[in-house]
């Protein structure tokens, strides 16, 4: 299943104002992997994600999706393969009603209407949002918007899912539901986030970005327990791996 491969080789990107966002990032993701991209604000996470489906083109280095290099000719294929869930669902849900929004991608792919209809219904059912089908997006709650945004990407049947801060601005219960949903996916998943507990639940592998470079790349459990590494990248241990303040106080008084 080579079409699920994501390969980034020595990727560099400078913004027009001179900010060097990426300074030689390289990694290789294989089929079905769930990978977290973490790092401080401004470490280059979002810029990296925008390269993965060709919203930005590499200025130096290379991005290969499923063995194909990312360039103008492969762009539409890459965009079909890589589904991107943006951070703010309001940016992603631009059509008048939920149904139209989920149908937007498949219709652009030129699928026949009957097939599109089925895809839309399946995708909405997959994220548990079938009842929202006829609602305008501005009338949805944050969690509902997130679910529909994911459905709108699933409807394109991508092999690779890229998500920017999927758990941002969700209440704890909705966040938990999202994690459970993402666990059921078989796609190659790339998640940029500050929610390290979510990383612990979902991703077997973690890449730390620091100043536009890969500071660490390895199994999540190893990386998230390396306090020195985390501190140097403006991160800290996931809360669940930190001592519980209540228990610590109790054991302290027992001493």
């Amino acid at each position: 299943m080579s079409h699920h491969l994501v390969e980034v080789k020595d990727l560099k990107y400078h913004y027009p104002d001179g900010t060097a966002a990426l300074q030689g990032v390289s990694f290789l993701l294989t089929h079905g992997e769930a990978v977290a991209i973490i790092g401080a604000n401004g470490a280059g996470k979002s810029t990296l994600l925008l390269h993965l489906n060709g919203c930005l083109m590499p200025q130096a280095g290379e991005v290969r999706i499923g063995g194909l290099p990312l360039n103008k000719n492969t762009l539409s294929h890459v965009r079909r393969t890589v589904g991107m869930v943006f951070q703010d669902p309001d940016d992603q849900l631009f059509m008048p009603i939920v149904y139209d929004d989920v149908a937007f991608g498949p219709l652009n792919l030129g699928l026949p209407p009957a097939e599109v209809d089925q895809l839309v219904k399946d995708s909405l059912a997959r994220v548990g949002a079938s009842h929202l089908q006829d609602r305008p997006p501005y009338r949805l709650s944050g969690g509902e918007k997130r679910a529909v945004a994911i459905a709108s990407v699933l409807a394109m049947s991508p092999d690779i899912l890229v998500m920017d801060e999927p758990s941002a601005a969700l209440d704890p219960k909705t966040r938990r539901q999202l994690i459970e949903l993402l666990k059921t996916f078989k796609h190659t998943r790339i998640i940029a986030t500050h929610d390290l507990d979510l990383v612990l639940d979902l991703c077997s592998r973690t890449i730390i970005l620091k100043d536009g470079q890969v500071a660490a790349d390895g199994p999540t459990l190893d990386i998230l327990q390396n306090e020195e590494l985390l501190a140097s990248s403006s991160l800290e241990k996931p809360l669940r791996l930190q001592g519980c303040p209540v228990c610590r106080a109790k054991s302290g008084s027992a001493d």
């Binding site: 489906n53 539409s76 965009r79 589904g83 991107m84 943006f86 940016d91 992603q92 937007f104 652009n108």
Partner: peptide, 11 residues
Amino acid sequence: RIHLAMLSRGF
């Protein structure tokens, strides 16, 4: 950002 989101879905 909206335009990027549209492009990402084959617009």
